[in-house]
Design a binder for these strands. Structure first.
Length: 888
DNA sequence: GCGTTCACG
DNA sequence: ACGTACGTGAACGCC
């Protein structure tokens, strides 16, 4: 058997691990406050490597210090690098301990870099007939690739690696691994801080290396080069090139004091590892260890719990519950309108009561408890609990703490529907996740074993109770208590009501439309096949791409990661090339209506009431908006006339009733005017201007009374949208089909005309960089860890989000406040009208015809007075017999 | 389960 | 040299 050697570039992997997890750095600390992200990442890498490569010998090489023979010959070698953060330095000794406990050797050598140790051992191993795997985060080491040595360079994170063999190097660069040294000598290395030859980058360097073979050969034959600037630079920088070649060369004969024989790998020392993981707080690794070594550790990680199983005969025991209880009704399926009930738990630290029999909830002692307005309820997902209990004829009153909702407000990423996962986010570990207890995928099931199920329920209720104080304190710290108490929690009840009410949908209308669409679809389909000359699956972008771009040879406009793009914007550019393009666009439009809106909606009409009951997700979006699922009622077609017809099926649930709808006009731009304080933008709104027209006047420098043609208004509108989304000249140019230069000019003009907006953008990004988050007018928070990202595109995205989130999020805050007040008004005035839908800036109601005049007054009044901004809010209302027929 | 496309604000 | 407007959900093909 060929022996195998594993060589790991310790420093570079530790760096990678540290920065890969930089965003979550705060989560990776042990009980002593030691940062552990790099240790954790190193361990991940190690496991991953050892799973795929079984070494007989293994070594992790480290740099010995800053001074090396390279710094002695070139002062600035690796100069200009930032100081290694303390959070990383403190982890290095622990990484070395991890290496030792894992059964690997580690080594460093004064005056030499880890690279040189690796290069030297790889050479010895090559000579001795070993197969060697080098793992590193540094691409420089690819020069060591050979027939028997593969270099794995981390790609993304620490476990995703790219394997460099001589063939792979050849394929990527067209040169041999050893020639990488020559390439680097010519092009330099900015991270190691040596320059190379002036004006020569990777492309030119590779060309020269291919042509001449090496730096030495190049200078042998320098006269053969034609006269050029490049030749002058080469001649001028010859000394530098030769010196850089030495710097770039990894030694293969460093004076190391170890040999292959010293590197034997005989597997981990499990007892030591268990101790180490405990010290680091690596629970997941502990769990994965051999059970012999963990023992009952797994069980012991969750504090035991006792509970009382409720029956019809012991309900009187509940009398002891006073003041405050935690309650959890288990509905194992996501859709709580239809999910079966698996059981429930109620109680406090004194005693947890539980049962599988939800019928017990209807018995007086329990029902009265839940409906009692003097006993505070602590729950997880208030809205789901309200709906679930409503199905059992129970009204859940006096909800105090909602773990899910509070957790979401503290950090919008903590939005799992799994209580165990959310608890873990807050460092509470005495509860398992549903996935652990119920399994996942097809195997997911509520366990038959009472002990397992009941203790899971009881630990969930306990988790809610134990996290309450801590999360309330954190909300307070963030100034988010009013957001929780006055907006989100009351909103949960309003949303529950809307979902329970549901919206009446006429199935027959949908079916009739469906048959027409089916006919039309068949027609277009045969036209497309005719045009293509064969039958294929039009829904498959792969097959469609083949037909359009290979068979019909249409020009390729845009590519995707996996092939040709066939999206609308690409196809529109081909419309004049072949009739098949328009046919495909029409096919797509109709197929979408058919599958998503006809069949899709028909599937979710409840047979008992002919209504659709969506679920609003209150804890999902990163901005504070709602989202709607099962089905999504926030994206019913409206823009195109064909799609808009779908709305004819949305009808009132009673004879003699109508649909009524009010929407905010330009709410996001008004919010922008408010939070930026921009004088010009505020004046335009205060003067009741058509905002896109007045923007056009300003950015195109027109007279105040100038006529604005449609195209100008369209462009100005795009600029306004662009500002809200975090604009780039490229993006704007794409959208309104102008040159990038023109788009750039529009944006410059905008910032000149609206200097307050410009200042807001700068200030907000600065705030995000300083604090790591941004806020809305109600102190809703969004964290933006990528605001510090090295990657331009990641960082840019975070910057755009930083300025967009306060705008989109504040608009969401406003309509949420309006919804709560609106529901109050409907009840206070004993109106029959029902709030049915929220579509971000619009509220849809159904009401008896005679109440329409009342709503026409009331709804806009409530909506435009929801908050007081520095600019007025404007609301438009419409009504009609169906959602399609709405008119002013 | 992921990628692409397209529906909405 | 890069990659490009914010926030969502559903259907479908493909692996």
């Amino acid at each position: 058997m060929t022996k195998q050697l594993l060589l790991i570039d310790g420093n570079s992997i530790v760096f990678r691990a540290f920065f890969a997890m930089h965003n979550q750095m705060d989560k990776f600390t042990n009980k002593d406050g030691l940062h552990t992200a790099a240790i954790y990442g190193f361990k991940l890498m190690l496991d991953h490597v050892l799973q795929n490569f079984k070494p007989d010998a293994a070594l992790v090489a480290f740099d010995a210090g800053k001074v090396t023979f390279r710094t002695k010959m070139y002062d600035d070698y690796k100069g200009g690098r930032n100081k290694t953060p303390n959070e990383l330095t403190e982890q290095i000794p622990y990484v070395r301990e991890l290496i030792k406990d894992s059964g690997l050797h580690s080594y460093d050598l004064a005056n030499y870099e880890a690279d040189d140790i690796i290069g030297t051992l790889a050479k010895q191993a090559d000579d001795a007939g070993y197969k060697t795997l080098i793992v590193t985060g540094d691409r420089d080491l690819t020069q060591l690739a050979s027939e028997n040595t593969t270099v794995a360079v981390t790609h993304k994170g620490v476990t995703d690696t790219e394997h460099y063999t001589p063939a792979h190097v050849e394929e990527k660069l067209g040169i041999t691994p050893r020639q990488i040294i020559d390439m680097k000598a010519l092009m330099g290395d900015s991270s190691d801080n040596y320059p190379g030859v002036t004006k020569i980058g990777e492309k030119t360097a590779i060309k020269l290396v291919k042509q001449f073979g090496s730096v030495e050969e190049l200078y042998e034959h320098i006269d053969e080069l034609k006269k050029s600037k490049m030749k002058e630079h080469l001649i001028e920088d010859e000394e530098i090139a030769r010196q850089c070649k030495t710097l770039a060369t990894i030694l293969r004969d460093a004076p190391i004091k170890i040999s292959l024989a010293d590197l034997k790998y005989e597997g981990p020392q499990n007892d030591e590892l268990v101790k180490f993981y405990k010290e680091m707080g690596f629970k997941s690794f502990l769990k994965k260890m051999d059970p012999d070594h963990v023992g009952d550790e797994d069980e012991a990680t969750i504090a035991p719990i006792s509970y009382t199983v409720l029956t019809k005969d012991n309900l009187t025991k509940l009398a002891q519950l006073k003041g405050e209880v935690s309650f959890y009704l288990e509905m194992p399926e996501a859709n709580y309108h239809t999910s079966p009930f698996a059981g429930f738990v109620i109680g406090n630290d004194e005693c947890w009561f539980t049962s599988r029999d939800v019928e017990l909830l209807k018995e007086a002692p329990l029902k009265d408890l839940l409906e009692n307005t003097g006993i505070k309820k602590n729950v997880f997902n208030a809205k789901a609990q309200i709906v679930g209990l409503h199905r059992l004829g129970i009204s859940l009153e006096d909800i105090n703490f909602d773990l899910l909702l509070a957790s979401y407000l503290l950090n919008t990423n903590d939005n799992s529907n799994d209580l165990g996962q959310v608890a873990q986010e807050h460092d509470y570990d005495d509860v398992r996740t549903d996935e652990e207890v119920y399994g996942k995928g097809a195997k997911r099931a509520v366990p038959d074993d009472d002990e397992v199920f009941f203790s899971h329920l009881a630990t969930k209720a306990r988790a809610i109770a134990h996290l309450r104080k801590d999360l309330f304190a954190k909300l307070d710290e963030n100034k988010q208590t009013p957001l929780y108490t006055d907006i989100e929690l009351p909103l949960a009840r309003v949303l529950a009501k809307m979902e329970i009410t549901g919206v009446h949908v006429d199935a027959q209308t949908l079916k009739n439309m469906g048959s027409k669409l089916t006919e039309r679809l068949a027609e277009i389909e045969s036209q497309i096949y005719q045009e293509a000359g064969e039958e294929f699956n039009i829904n498959s972008t792969k097959q469609l791409g083949h037909i359009l771009f290979e068979k019909l040879k249409l020009p390729v406009i845009k590519k995707t990661k996996t092939g040709y793009s066939t999206a609308v914007d690409a196809l529109e550019k081909l419309a004049d090339k072949s009739p098949i393009v328009e046919q495909i666009l029409e096919y797509r439009q109709i197929a979408k209506l058919q599958s998503t809106y006809i069949t899709g909606l028909l599937k979710v009409i409840h047979s008992n009431d002919q209504k659709i009951h969506t679920r609003y997700l209150q804890t999902l979006t990163q901005t504070g908006r709602l989202s709607s699922v099962d089905p999504n009622l926030q994206n019913i077609p409206v823009r195109l006339p064909e799609g808009r017809l779908i709305r004819k099926a949305f009808v009132p649930s009673h004879e003699g009733w109508q649909i009524f709808s009010s929407d905010y006009s330009q709410v996001e731009l008004r919010v922008l005017a408010h939070i930026t304080g921009d004088k010009n933008l505020q004046d335009d709104f205060k003067n009741g201007e058509d905002i896109h027209a007045s923007t056009a006047r300003r950015i195109f420098h027109l007279a105040p009374d100038a006529e604005i043609d449609r195209n100008m208004r369209r462009r100005a509108k795009a600029v306004n949208f662009g500002i809200v989304y975090g604009i780039s000249d490229y993006g704007l140019a794409q959208r309104i089909h102008v040159s990038r230069a023109e788009a750039h000019e529009f944006i410059q003009n905008y910032f000149h005309e609206f200097p307050g907006v410009k200042k807001y953008i700068n200030d907000t990004i600065a705030f995000a960089k300083e604090n790591g988050y941004v806020e809305t007018i109600t102190h809703r928070r969004r964290y933006l860890p990528d605001i510090h990202a090295k990657s331009f595109s990641k960082r840019s995205f975070a910057e755009r989000t930083a300025m967009n989130t306060p705008i989109q999020g504040s608009a969401a805050d406003i309509i949420k406040i309006a919804m709560i007040r609106m529901q109050d008004e409907l009840e206070k005035r004993h109106l029959q009208a029902k709030m049915l839908l929220q579509i971000h800036d619009e509220l849809v109601f159904e009401a008896p015809k005679e109440e329409i005049p009342v709503l026409s007054e009331l709804v806009p009044k409530v909506m435009d007075s929801a908050v007081k901004l520095d600019v007025p809010l404007k609301v438009d209302s419409k009504y009609g017999d169906t959602w399609y027929d709405l008119k002013k």
